[in-house]
Design a protein around this nucleic acid. Sequence first.
DNA 1: CGACGGTCCGAAAAGGTTTTCAAGAAGTGA
DNA 2: TCACTTCTTGAAAACCTTTTCGGACCGTCG
Lengths: 333, 333
Amino acid sequence: MSRATLRDVAKLAGVSVATASKALNGQPQVRAETRERVVRAAEQLSFSPNTLAQGLITQRSGTVGLLTSDLEGRFSIPILMGAEDAFGSDQTSVFLCDARGDTIREKHHLRALLSRRVDGLIVVGARPDTRPSLGDLPVPVVYAYAPSDDPADLSLITDNVGGGRTAVDHLIRCGRRRIAHITGDPGYSAAQDRARGAVERLTEGGLELAGGEVWFGMWSEAWGRGATRMLLDRCPEVDAIFAGSDEIARGVLDVLHEERIDVPSRVAVIGFDNWSVLAVNSRPPLTTIDLNLEHLGRIAAQRLSAAMEGVTGSGVETFPVRLITRESTAPLR
Amino acid sequence: MSRATLRDVAKLAGVSVATASKALNGQPQVRAETRERVVRAAEQLSFSPNTLAQGLITQRSGTVGLLTSDLEGRFSIPILMGAEDAFGSDQTSVFLCDARGDTIREKHHLRALLSRRVDGLIVVGARPDTRPSLGDLPVPVVYAYAPSDDPADLSLITDNVGGGRTAVDHLIRCGRRRIAHITGDPGYSAAQDRARGAVERLTEGGLELAGGEVWFGMWSEAWGRGATRMLLDRCPEVDAIFAGSDEIARGVLDVLHEERIDVPSRVAVIGFDNWSVLAVNSRPPLTTIDLNLEHLGRIAAQRLSAAMEGVTGSGVETFPVRLITRESTAPLR
DNA sequence: CGACGGTCCGAAAAGGTTTTCAAGAAGTGA
DNA sequence: TCACTTCTTGAAAACCTTTTCGGACCGTCG
């Protein structure tokens, strides 16, 4: 199967390339009968227009780049899917490039993307901390998940403070009063922000953290287990644990189970991330906070489209997270 | 920041576009001094060649498509990374398109890819079962992970039979003799193949399956737990369990732990997939089988490059998996 | 019957690059 | 001095499509 060009189509239909082009693109100045003939010729040759040539002339490649540093693709993939959805079938495709946290690889990919004349760029960080701006580029850029350090750029991020707040709010509504928070690496703004939101909501409810402080540590099940043991030691009357990630939550559940402490009747547990392989399969299934990354991806695509039309934005926009209720939390009887 | 064309560079360097092109592309027929001048001009204008125009003329877009149906990206991502590695910086980028298991979306993406004039296509299935061929396309295609049903296509798959064999071999070398196999949905060839490999190796060692049969079920932790309970009931003297996936293995470990059966001293457990969030964080860390998907991606890229040069292959090639030893298996004292 | 307006079509330019080929300059040997 | 290479360079064609603009044709009106 080889490739037919517009010229071949035109010849077969007995018209000029110009008319063929107009016929295929729905331009009005072509007789219905002629158009019909061209369309049939195109089908017969299974003609598919050369996007490169189109791009050359329209100065639009119909392509955007998605530059990520998140190797496992845990955050990038939902964002990618959201973006693809938003661009829809309206002839823009997404180039995914993974820099794997390597600055020089990022530069390399950036050059490749630019020389492919992408119409825009979505930059996704590996963690929600501020990242260096790419600077002044010939195409619009939107930063997603991790904000740019340049306020002139447009950044779209998830609301981690709100997430912490939502988690604790849910626990309070379940009637819990002695709520602890075990979370990951304090060097992550995600950890700090979630903790801050949690404490804010507790304070509003006139409550204090069970255990007296936030238990920072690592983003791992092992830390979840260790911290839970220490917590139970120091504060055995705890009735809810807010874990900073689903991984940590798994560790928490594990120790609770081991200690024959029932979840959720005695202690409620809530996670963060809605990483389904962890959250759905746990015992019991984990109530958690979903970052709504697909939505973030859709918005990023929309903002990018807008910027491509000339209406550019800047600053940091924050998007709400979503509570996913499963069985690891329930009202206290 | 706008875009300089080769014309601008040529003008600034005081040469024709033809010479500028040759200078930048390392063609020999240009004086060193002239080349130097052109290169400096290009740098000064931060010129980056328009790949679309290049592709138009060379009939090479420097682009390959990676068409996947694996939404979570669990298999696609390592394959993508391997492919990117293999193509290296030699100016080919990878377009990732996720059809999400939807045939019409697949068709759509295929058309988009083709009209973007990709030089080749890697098709990644969501599961290792045979999938329908894309048929005769104007570019070379290699199927990875899931083989095409057309033997004229080239398919690259992982060796699930060998994987089952390797897992059981390892357990036997650890001195285990009463080995059970709990695995997922029997409708998956992956489940069948791994089981077959396991049984083959057992037979060679003069052994039979503990529990009398393969425990087929689902690819979930819950099934891992349920099956383990039944297994312990029916065959309490079991000394090793080969789980068909890391998820199932997690369920197995969970019940073993609950029953105070020590791993690995009394029962050894081996998983499958090396899905690190599950395997590394488990208690104890899980010995498992790695599918070597990055390698598969690299090979796919190489085969595709070869096919683009005209040396095309066909048939199904099988690639070996790799044993990852962690702490859930150990020699019997 | 001539002018005019509308409809449909095609020639040609444009977009940015690579490549071929010819031409000019400079050097070599006779 | 002439014929002939060898080095450099540039003009132009090519890749495929879109778009502009002018031309051909037909019917209508005065």
